[in-house]
Computed example of a mutant assay.
Amino acid sequence: MNEIIPILRRCKLFCELEDSVIAEQILPAGNILRYPEKTTLILGQDTVDWFAVLLLGRVQISQIHPDGRRNLMGILRPPAVIAADLICTRTRRSPYDAIAATDVRLLRFPMNWLFERKLNPDIQMSVYRQLMTLVSHDNMRRYYRIAILSQKGLRSRILTYLTMQAERLCCSSFTIPFNREELADYLCVNRSALSHELKRMEREGILRTRKNLFVLCQDGEREG
């Protein structure tokens, strides 16, 4: 159990708390759960009454359309919080699926533990403050994704996404959290078309790429 405390200390929800508080008041309130790859943790339209800290593995957040198409919204890695946005809504009904992309381990908490004043008031206020920050960051990520998907051309979507990453990291060389298939799903484009366009952009000297490492060489024209 002691190896979990540093992970929780890095989790935004508990980052203001001392290790002793995490060990004595936070850790005992959760249950450690393990799920194999491809397990559906949250199904679209589920009503969710829990939240969890991801301790190990990756979780894909996706929307599955009636025709079977998948719209990848993001990928969570430790120490991300799962379902923080859902428990703050009136219905707590999920608009997305959360699926284990690898074997995962979670520390899951009942929602009532957070909202029924079972914590010291100062600790609870700290967690509430960080929860508000988490939800705000989720909203900003959705805004950025809308800005990407509003671009009409494939090249425009690619460059908008990569430029956002470079600006966020203040560096023209960076890694992204997606493989090619995941990036295609995130941008809502065909994987083959994405690979072809990236190769063409490399030939034109706009970028260099190796797997999920990208280097922006110059400002390319944003046209599809």
Rank of each mutant, 00 (worst) to 15 (best):
A23H: 06
A23M: 07
E24M: 06
E24L: 09
Q25M: 01
I26E: 00
I26A: 01
I26L: 02
L27C: 05
L27E: 04
A29R: 12
G30H: 10
N31D: 14
N31I: 10
N31P: 01
N31W: 13
I32K: 12
I32M: 13
L33P: 04
L33F: 14
L33N: 03
R34M: 02
Y35H: 15
Y35G: 01
Y35F: 14
P36S: 11
P36I: 07
E37L: 10
K38P: 02
K38D: 13
T39Y: 11
T40C: 14
L41W: 02
L41Q: 05
I42W: 01
L43A: 13
Q45A: 08
D46V: 10
D46S: 11
T47R: 15
T47N: 13
V48Y: 02
V48M: 03
V48H: 02
W50E: 06
F51P: 01
A52C: 14
A52K: 13
A52S: 15
V53I: 11
L54G: 13
L55V: 00
L56Y: 15
L56H: 15
R58A: 02
V59I: 04
Q60G: 02
Q60H: 12
I61T: 09
S62K: 12
Q63E: 07
Q63S: 10
Q63H: 08
I64N: 01
P66N: 09
P66H: 07
D67F: 04
G68L: 14
R69C: 03
R69N: 08
R70C: 04
N71C: 09
N71H: 08
L72V: 03
L72F: 01
M73C: 12
I75L: 13
L76D: 05
R77S: 14
R77P: 00
P79F: 00
P79R: 00
A80P: 03
V81T: 15
V81H: 12
I82E: 15
A83C: 14
A83T: 08
A83L: 09
A84N: 11
D85G: 10
D85R: 13
L86F: 12
I87Q: 04
C88T: 09
C88S: 14
T89H: 11
T91A: 13
T91Y: 05
T91Q: 07
T91F: 08
T91E: 10
R92E: 12
R92F: 11
R93M: 15
S94D: 08
P95Y: 09
Y96W: 05
A98W: 10
A98D: 05
A98H: 09
I99V: 15
I99S: 06
I99K: 13
I99L: 09
A101W: 06
A101R: 10
A101T: 12
T102K: 14
V104I: 15
V104F: 01
L106I: 07
L107E: 12
L107R: 09
P110A: 06
P110S: 14
M111N: 04
M111L: 13
M111H: 07
M111R: 12
W113R: 11
W113K: 05
W113M: 12
W113N: 03
L114Q: 13
